[in-house]
Design a protein around this nucleic acid. Structure first.
Lengths: 184, 184
DNA sequence: GTCTATATAATGATAGAC
DNA sequence: GTCTATCATTATATAGAC
């Protein structure tokens, strides 16, 4: 799917890859849509866990950026989105997962908005998650395509910006609750 | 292409739409790739002109946002990107156009960076164009898909932010060169 | 330029033997 | 559960008549 696109995923090729016949593929997956949905299910489960682990961090903003910048995951997601564009049953599942992912990110980020210096405007967590996801998604998509104008400056800028916010957070947290261990 | 995806664009369907035979389509376009490239060429030409007109504005930042938020254009671009993902000859053309579009935006924006209050950091024009394009692209892609969490807050935020910068620019320009006409 | 006819190859899916 | 055989469909593309 990543190499040749979803259109190249045929029952015959899947069968060859698994060293079985194409008919056996149909035995397990009644239709190709069923096969794609099964694959998507695996992908979502694995990614939800991976994201949950990543977001369980004192710096969820950096975690979101790192997570959404994962090339293989985003490329596969984009391929599924392309597939979803003309298959109703698949589109529904992809959209559902997209909502879940974003809600998870927002929930993880919201409690930290004050620490990051954004005051108590929790609605801004929505904006940050959408913008970060959009940026990494586009950077990966364009790099894959061969477009690169402005890329290094943009990712540099975002990463510096996140580091600065991270420092703000650490500063605020140190003030709020003095550290228990007085290390060197 | 917009309705059913590039995979549904076959010589037969194109022919039916044009009330001719599929063989005649092949007479004009030797391969399907040639047909897609011809369509892409039209799309690029029309959009370059449209963008040139839009960017010829005292507020190029707002122009970029408005332009890249154009739904039909972005949806078609995304479909071409999906197509490009597994067709080398097409990918090359899409990437080339992507670079040209971005360079045009950066060139239009750079001279105004000082007016917008970003000082003389012209490199930041790259960052702004990439971020704005990414955001609008993702918003359109997700809306199309049925994902909407955080969308209204994000576009509201971006639009307010652009309006604020626009006001800064007007303020700075008024200071720089006092207006010639003293209207009421 | 537009057509009919056709070559060739791939696809999703089913039937039925073992 | 895994196979062989096969159907029906669709696709890109070409040859040649008019």
């Amino acid at each position: 799917m990543l190499k040749e696109g979803y259109a190249a995923v045929t029952s015959r090729k899947v069968a060859r890859e698994a060293n079985v016949t194409s008919q056996l593929v149909h035995y397990y997956f009644s239709t190709m849509d069923a096969l794609f949905l099964a694959l998507w299910g695996r992908f979502v489960t694995a990614n939800m866990e991976r994201q949950a682990r990543a977001l369980n961090s004192p710096d969820p903003l950096g975690a979101i950026w790192n997570f959404t910048s994962h090339v293989a995951g985003t490329a596969l997601e984009l391929e599924f989105i392309a597939l979803a564009h003309h298959r109703k049953t698949i589109r529904k599942e992809i959209a559902r997962a997209g909502d879940r992912f974003r809600k998870m990110q927002i929930e993880a980020l919201s409690p930290f908005m004050d620490d990051y210096g954004f005051g108590r405007d929790k609605g801004f967590a929505d904006v940050l998650t959408v913008l970060l996801t959009s940026a990494s998604r586009s950077l990966i998509m364009e790099k894959d395509l061969g477009v690169s104008v402005g890329h290094s400056r943009t990712s540099d800028y975002i990463e510096k910006w996140i580091k600065r916010l991270s420092a703000v957070r650490r500063h605020n947290c140190a003030k709020k609750r003095p550290r228990k261990q007085a290390g060197a």
